[in-house]
Design a protein around this nucleic acid. Structure first.
Lengths: 227, 227
DNA sequence: TCGAAAAGTAATCATGTGATAAATAATCCG
DNA sequence: CGGATTATTTATCACATGATTACTTTTCGA
């Protein structure tokens, strides 16, 4: 069977096949996230390009400088990791507050407790507190204040939208304790139990055991100051 | 009053005064710890030398390479931050377990919850899990297992030196939650409450509210497996 | 099919880095 | 004092880094 080079058949494919601009951008962000998660944001651009399979200057076609790429990684990691369905779970009053937060934290930890997400989060916090500050605000508004408010309602207390900082602290204690479990398991690679359900159960047990007292204490001090 | 330069008086002091080898070493480690805490272990050796007030090659007289300096910083930060007296506090059975751990965590957080210690700890964990693994082992042996054992005794349970991993997890939850408070306060610089005593009180409330159940659950499963 | 637009590479620059060798200056001791 | 020792600096190297420019190759629509 003779090979006819000059004939423009579908076999004569180009040496390097190109990708669309959008595809390349997301490839680069993906590779950068992996690399930064391993090395930190000091990681080199050449290594990222190598992971994508392109040359290093190509990165500068899509990002004006390294900081822009880092910012894109921030966005990607944080935005992709928040699932809008979770808010529905937390608000579903056909379930007890306890089982809502149990379900939520199972989903939340399953989605976010990966070496990549955890390492990027901690690297980001150490590099530039701002981005992490923003994310913590999200956690506070969407999860922790929700926990306090819904729990107070379930306890038959008046529905006060205000949640004081001191009242939030025990909720942070739970959230932070779980995060530290992720840190030990997926960053330090320590041989912790992998029964995430049990860990969450125990953590929530702790919270619900003391929460009512904390609300009462805060209600007293709020009455004094009239918050 | 004529100035007689050739006379070897005490006024004719040398231009640069030298320091002893030991003094320089500790100066360098100190400056390196500060710098690494701010920038991370990618921080430059020239900047460290600048902080000390010497030239950069001098560092290589005292440390064969940068990794050795980093290791020295590890040692310095971790060793200086552990106070041997704390072990006595934890073992003092004239006090209740609760008040012992309350006193301990007040001292522990006061000593360690600084931007420098926290940032170096997290940077170290991200860079090389090993060093942090070692420190966590210390925490586990000296603090958390101690908490479980002493509490069991106080509850009138048999004095079993063995503490299962699953039994340790709620104690880690408390410890990790407190650490995360430090992270938010001293790394992210978030406006958290600065009533550390209250934070510790609430955290310990949580632990002691559920601990007995956890011990019982573990005693059951241990009976099955005969650990 | 041809030519413009866009994806991609090669070559290179300026700079900052860890590290080394040789020279200098302060200190110590007989 | 005077020589040996040692702290410290000067000059420099090799290399990796972020970034830029000019060139090449693929793609795609008129």
């Amino acid at each position: 069977m003779p090979k006819i080079d000059s004939l423009p058949t579908q076999n004569a494919r180009p040496k390097r096949q190109r990708k669309s601009s959008e595809q390349r951008v997301s490839d680069i962000i993906e590779a950068a996230a992996d690399h930064f998660a391993e090395i930190g944001f000091g990681g080199g651009t050449r290594e990222i390009a190598k992971r994508v399979g392109v040359t290093q200057p190509l990165l500068y076609r899509y990002f004006p400088d390294k900081d822009s790429l880092i910012e894109a990684v921030y966005r990607s990691v944080y935005l992709e990791s928040w699932n809008a369905d979770w808010e529905a779970i937390l608000q579903d009053r056909s379930q007890s507050v306890r089982s809502r937060f149990d379900a939520f934290y199972r989903a939340y930890t399953q989605a976010n407790f990966t070496p990549r997400w955890l390492r990027i989060s901690y690297f980001a916090g150490l590099r530039d507190a701002h981005i992490n500050e923003w994310y913590n605000h999200l956690v506070e508004e969407l999860i922790l204040k929700q926990l306090v408010r819904e729990h107070r309602i379930e306890l038959g207390q008046p529905d006060d939208a205000y949640v004081s900082p001191a009242e939030l602290e025990p909720a942070w204690q739970i959230h932070g304790g779980l995060l530290h479990y992720g840190w030990r398991r997926h960053v330090l690679n320590l041989p912790v139990t992998n029964d995430m359900g049990q860990v969450i159960d125990d953590a929530l047990d702790m919270y619900f055991a003391v929460a009512a007292n904390v609300y009462a204490r805060e209600a007293d001090s709020d009455a004094d100051t009239g918050h």
